[in-house]
């Protein structure tokens, strides 16, 4: 993480060139993120906050370039398809994972019993 100002003698100093982007690559990227996360069941608000989060640089970049209005319309367009239903996962009856019940604290009378008289 670069805390200091760039040092020209540093062998790892950023030497970058801009790779030209196709005209609508930001738009395509915005659609891709909106659609992928809408499929995971994200709401309109959650999708928008994903784009507003500066640390998700791809989505944030698209929002900076295209503007919030455009991003909102992309989200709306995506949700018109993917918000009509939810994917529901049913685990097999034979559960493998640790059940939540086993993590709950024991009932007081159980504790008394285990502690002994």
């Amino acid at each position: 993480m670069p805390y200091a100002d760039p040092d020209p003698t540093d062998p790892t100093l950023l030497v970058g060139v801009e790779v030209p982007a196709e005209e609508d690559s930001d738009l395509e990227m915005a659609y891709a993120f909106a659609e992928e996360f809408a499929r995971l069941g994200f709401s309109q608000q959650r999708l928008l906050s994903l784009f507003r989060q500066s640390f998700y640089a791809g989505a944030y970049r698209a929002l900076q370039r295209l503007g919030e209005e455009k991003i909102s319309s992309i989200i709306k367009e995506t949700l018109q398809v993917w918000d009509n239903f939810r994917f529901v996962i049913h685990d097999s009856p034979e559960r493998f994972d640790v059940s939540l019940d086993s993590l709950r604290p024991l009932e007081p009378h159980h504790q008394q019993h285990e502690d002994g008289p």
């Binding site: 918000d83 009509n84 239903f85 939810r86 994917f87 529901v88 996962i89 049913h90 685990d91 097999s92």
Partner: peptide, 8 residues
Amino acid sequence: FRTTVEEP
């Protein structure tokens, strides 16, 4: 597991 589609 199995996944299905449901209306919200």
